[in-house]
Design a protein around this nucleic acid. Structure first.
Lengths: 138, 138
DNA sequence: CTTGAAGCTCTAGTGACTAGAGGTTGTAGA
DNA sequence: TCTACAACCTCTAGTCACTAGAGCTTCAAG
């Protein structure tokens, strides 16, 4: 049996975050000692590991809830799980696309200015003031 | 002179967002009609355009505040503006790095599973349960 | 002069935590 | 067995950048 602090150390999830996950229903309520402190077993450890990993991959709490539901109903097809993962992938790719455009723009903006001179003709500021200078969509 | 709605249309910034920007001090308080409605001039339009563009590029409200300060003190060196832009670029690049790793992982996870079969051996779920399956750091 | 779209302020909600106050419990050492 | 104190508890509020809604007032066209 682990205390919440030990669970935290083993998973790398902060103590208040673990309590938060319980509060929003991601983790089932932990058993308690007589003095009302949470105690976890190996099962709890694994569930939190799953959540941690999914969060690291950018899945939302809502998506993780759905995935945990699926885990607990092994009779259901895993098509749903695959869909959730693919939605997440599409999301990540969209973010990559946007960030790549931003990178291009920021490089252009940063390089135009050597940091000398006064800010009334600063390239960074004039570039931000006028979208028409941009080379990519964003 | 524009109403807040006209300003919104011209810049693509929603009306409540404009009021929010004023509230947090990004936009100086607009002049008002006798009936207490906001009226903007060309200056306000340009300032909001600047904010809009900088937000699109992912700059935080705080960073934009600093940039606007610099605009209003043209005597100060633009080195600070360049630093802010380069910080933002570093930030974007870090996000790109992480998202690229996530993409790799998600492709691997999604492709391992064809959506058939039941979820007790679903590759998506087992992959999420065990970080050791991963090929990249995240 | 009427109507209704557009404006106003204020409060509260979003997601995923994080921080802090103020109190209680568990446990290691004396 | 006692004591000290780290770790635990609950609850509220704050973060960021908005967004939504209630309930009211003003503007402008017909």
């Amino acid at each position: 049996m682990f205390s919440i602090g030990q669970l935290s150390k083993q998973t790398g999830v902060k103590v208040p975050t673990i309590r938060y996950y319980e509060q929003v229903g991601l983790l089932v309520s932990a058993g308690r000692t007589e003095g009302n402190q949470r105690r976890y077993d190996k099962d709890g450890l694994e569930r939190l590991g799953f959540i941690r990993h999914a969060r690291d991959l950018g899945f939302s709490i809502e998506a993780i809830s759905a995935l945990i539901d699926l885990q607990q109903h092994p009779d259901r097809s895993c098509q749903e799980a695959t869909e959730i993962a693919q939605d997440q992938l599409a999301d990540v790719r969209e973010k990559l696309r946007r960030l790549t455009a931003l990178e291009t723009e920021l490089v252009r903006i940063s390089e135009g200015c050597d940091g000398d001179g006064s800010s009334n003709d600063c390239y960074v500021l004039t570039s931000l003031a006028d979208h028409r200078h941009c080379r990519t969509e964003h």
